[in-house]
Amino acid sequence: MTTWVDTLPMTESPARPQQAPVGIPARVRAAQDGDAAAFEAIYRENVGRVHALCLRMTGNPREAEAMTQEAFVRAWQRLGQFRGESALSTWLNHVAVSVVLTSRRATLRRLRRVETTDDLARLDGPDPVRPQPDSRIDLERAIALLPDGARIVFVLFEIEGYTHAEIARELGIAENTSKAQLHRARGLLREVLHD
């Protein structure tokens, strides 16, 4: 079965330069053949990057660990689909994004059943509690404090280099909503970050 991970085009971005076809490294081939030790090496090499992505997308260390774990299990199950058309790290990032978004959709469905609301923006909740104007806050913490929707769009656009069209497709929202969430995220970050 083809998933969005296999069809998503690589996009150019400052954070994620487009990769030339790199072929399949021997270690990946070994893992594709079922070599768990080879996959462990892949895990060790990539876990920091995948965890960083999950942590920034969820804003929650505990959830980030669970998502990272799930991303590697999913990667193992789908490794046969990796054709070497992008770097393995790029492919793993796509798997992790898919895992986080799938989990988020499941959470939204659960909340929808309980809350019965047609305004999903409400599920983002109010803007987070902001630090006092004189306090200093690092960007990482500020991103974690963003409302769910704004944070995911910010991380995907600014850090992972997705386009608004890609974000819109993955989140099931309009491109303009993605742009609005990015604008909201930047505005909130500007307020809490003091140079």
């Binding site: 462990e40 895990y43 876990v47 920091g48 965890h51 960083a52 990272t68």
Partner: peptide, 11 residues
């Protein structure tokens, strides 16, 4: 940072 290792070994 491009990498943020998890607090514990998830392997």
């Amino acid at each position: 940072p491009r990498e943020v290792p998890p607090a514990r070994d998830l392997w």
